[in-house]
Design a protein around this nucleic acid. Structure first.
Length: 398
DNA sequence: ATGGCAGAGCATAGT
DNA sequence: TACTATGCTCTGCCA
DNA sequence: TGGGACAAGCCCGGT
DNA sequence: TACCGGGCTTGTCCC
């Protein structure tokens, strides 16, 4: 009677993948069996104990018993998992009765992950151990449709375990891939997308659709010609766009629109060009940076049109914190470089104040004439700059 | 970014 | 059996 | 007048 | 944020 109850419980709750792992586990556990009392302990489905207690007190068996699963803790500790971290992140997982940590570990090892990587993955995203073998196989196959090798995927999992494990919906993942491909994003873009913003693929496909729709609508609103093309361009220019909220993106676009008198075609061009990344900024940050940038430039005698020009040809300026930007400008102006020159060659702002200061010193020593030669020399890479300096020194020797 | 956080929805426990 | 409380998962958002 | 060697400028995209 | 360098065009000096 009791055993039949347990059996049906087992068949109902153990999904096929877990059952497959069961037999696998029994063979592989020998090597480490010295650490635990019995193979079943390692798997953390404590059947013998369950058999004893099930009729007496059902609640002790269930996942939500309110206590942590000691055998699971042992198993995780043995695997090198940072249990403290896991507990802090997803405490509920540690109380679960049926888990698949060994299956997961075997699976990942098979794909080339080291023991350390596996431990780190579980520590940071404990829910990973609730995924069944079958689920893992499916999901991996879908990812492999985009990546060339297992190792590539392992690298991403190591960086961002959550991206792979947060969703349990493989259908959705598949739909996402189909959807994103259908946009006309080529294999290379898809690859870059999943590499740099893997979270995109655990979004619901509806959410991704919404963002694309939003971008297309925006293109229409701004008088664009090919709306699909616009959305595609924004995405491939800004791989993070799909993990932003449409609310944020809309707020940023509205803000840009209202802040300086940029025309619709100009805005359209900006957003699908290098300015696409502006959309990532938190709304407050963007507001603050633009406001302070304007203030600073006005105080230096610039017109509003100059601000606009700067942003359009060098949007990255909006990423630079107001204080560093301000001191960077001061540092250049102090050495006799004019604002007009900076506006011509804004790329100089990409370099650190320290770097710029140092270069200015070296050039002053050689009596470099910025008025005559311009400031191109400041925005070269270190190597190129040094080579240039050498040539200059040689020239002045003669 | 990724880790934290919140809300919705779901399953189970408890009465 | 019906209803509530509790806890977990999933998704989406924030910075 | 042609052409080739070398430097500079410019535009990219990639960490 | 800060930094790097590939690759392409243009300019210039010399034979």
């Amino acid at each position: 009677m009791v055993s039949r109850h347990v059996l049906s419980l087992m068949t109902m709750t153990l999904v096929p993948g877990v059952r497959a792992l069961w037999s696998l586990h029994r063979t592989s556990v020998r090597a480490i069996s010295c650490f635990v009392a019995s193979p079943t302990h390692l798997f953390s489905v404590d059947i013998p104990r369950g058999l004893c207690t099930i009729s007496a007190n059902t609640s002790e068996l269930k996942p939500l018993a309110g206590r942590e699963n000691e055998l699971l803790l042992e198993s995780l500790t043995f695997m090198g998992v940072d249990v403290k971290m896991a507990r802090q992140r997803q405490p509920g997982v540690l109380r679960k009765f049926i888990t698949n940590e060994q299956g997961l570990a075997n699976f990942l090892h098979g794909k080339g992950a080291s023991r350390k990587v596996v431990a780190s993955i579980i520590s940071r995203y404990p829910r990973a151990i609730t995924r069944t073998g079958e689920h893992l196989e499916q999901r991996w196959a879908l990812w492999r449709g985009i990546f060339k090798s297992d190792q590539e995927i392992i690298n991403i999992l190591d960086r961002s375990p959550e991206s792979f494990f947060r969703s349990s919906d493989n259908d959705n993942l598949e739909k996402n891939i189909v959807f994103l491909s259908s946009l006309g994003l080529d294999a290379k873009d898809l690859h870059r997308l999943l590499t740099t913003a893997p979270r995109t693929f655990s979004n619901s496909v509806e959410l991704n659709r919404q963002m694309v729709k939003f971008l297309e609508d925006m293109s229409a609103e701004l008088g664009g010609q090919d709306h699909r093309q616009f959305a595609k361009a924004v995405i491939s220019r800004n791989l993070y766009i799909l993990i932003r909220s449409t609310k944020r993106v809309k707020a940023n676009i509205d803000f840009l629109k209202g802040s300086f008198n940029i025309s619709d075609p100009e805005l359209l061009a900006l957003l699908q060009g290098t300015g696409a990344e502006i959309l990532d900024l938190s709304n407050e940050y963007l507001k603050r940076n633009l406001k302070r940038l304007q203030e600073k430039m006005m105080s230096l005698g610039c017109q509003k049109a100059n601000v606009k020009k700067l942003i359009i040809c060098y949007p990255t300026v909006l990423f630079i914190g107001p204080d560093t930007l301000s001191s960077k400008l001061d540092c250049l102006l102090k050495r006799g470089i004019s604002m007009a020159q900076i506006l011509e060659k804004p790329k100089v702002l990409e370099y650190s104040t320290q770097n710029i200061t140092q270069r200015l010193e070296e050039l002053t020593k050689l009596q470099y004439d910025f008025k005559k030669n311009g400031i191109n020399i400041l925005d070269m890479s270190r190597k190129r700059f040094d080579a240039k300096l050498e040539r200059l020194a040689l020239l002045s020797d003669e």
